[in-house]
Amino acid sequence: MVAIRIEFDDDEQYERLKELKKHRGLTWKGLLLEGEKKVREDTPE
């Protein structure tokens, strides 16, 4: 297993992402994977 440490620019950025994570019922890993999926959908090959 690989561990990753995420550093946020400020408390506001952290709180915004934490609320999104909570609202969607995700873990931090789940939020990251959802973000990856969205980037892949929005980025042409």
Rank of each mutant, 00 (worst) to 15 (best):
M1Y: 12
M1H: 05
M1V: 12
M1K: 11
M1I: 04
M1N: 13
V2Q: 10
V2W: 05
A3I: 09
A3W: 06
I4V: 15
I4R: 14
I4E: 09
I4W: 13
I4D: 01
I4A: 10
R5P: 01
I6V: 15
E7P: 00
F8N: 04
F8M: 10
F8V: 02
D9C: 04
D9A: 08
D9H: 05
D10Y: 05
D10A: 07
D10L: 06
D11L: 13
D11S: 13
D11M: 11
E12G: 06
E12V: 07
E12M: 01
Q13T: 04
Q13G: 04
Y14I: 00
Y14E: 09
Y14H: 00
Y14R: 15
Y14M: 03
Y14T: 01
Y14P: 03
R16I: 02
R16W: 00
R16K: 11
L17C: 09
L17R: 04
E19F: 00
E19T: 10
E19I: 11
L20D: 07
L20Y: 04
K21I: 00
K22V: 05
K22C: 02
K22H: 09
K22Q: 11
K22P: 01
H23Y: 12
G25A: 06
G25H: 09
G25I: 11
G25L: 10
L26F: 04
L26E: 14
L26V: 06
L26M: 14
T27R: 12
T27E: 08
T27V: 07
T27N: 06
W28D: 07
W28H: 11
W28S: 02
K29R: 13
K29Y: 08
K29M: 06
K29T: 13
K29Q: 10
G30N: 08
G30R: 07
G30K: 09
G30W: 05
G30H: 03
L31A: 04
L31M: 14
L32A: 14
L32V: 15
L32K: 02
L33W: 01
L33G: 01
L33E: 15
L33F: 10
L33Y: 11
E34F: 07
E34W: 05
E34Y: 06
G35E: 01
G35R: 03
E36M: 13
E36A: 15
E36P: 01
K37E: 14
K37Y: 00
K38E: 15
K38P: 00
V39H: 07
V39F: 13
V39N: 02
V39K: 07
R40Q: 14
R40K: 15
E41S: 02
D42R: 13
D42S: 09
D42V: 03
D42P: 01
D42T: 08
P44V: 10
P44W: 05
P44Y: 09
P44N: 09
P44D: 12
P44T: 03
E45M: 01
E45R: 11
E45C: 02
E45Y: 03
E45F: 02
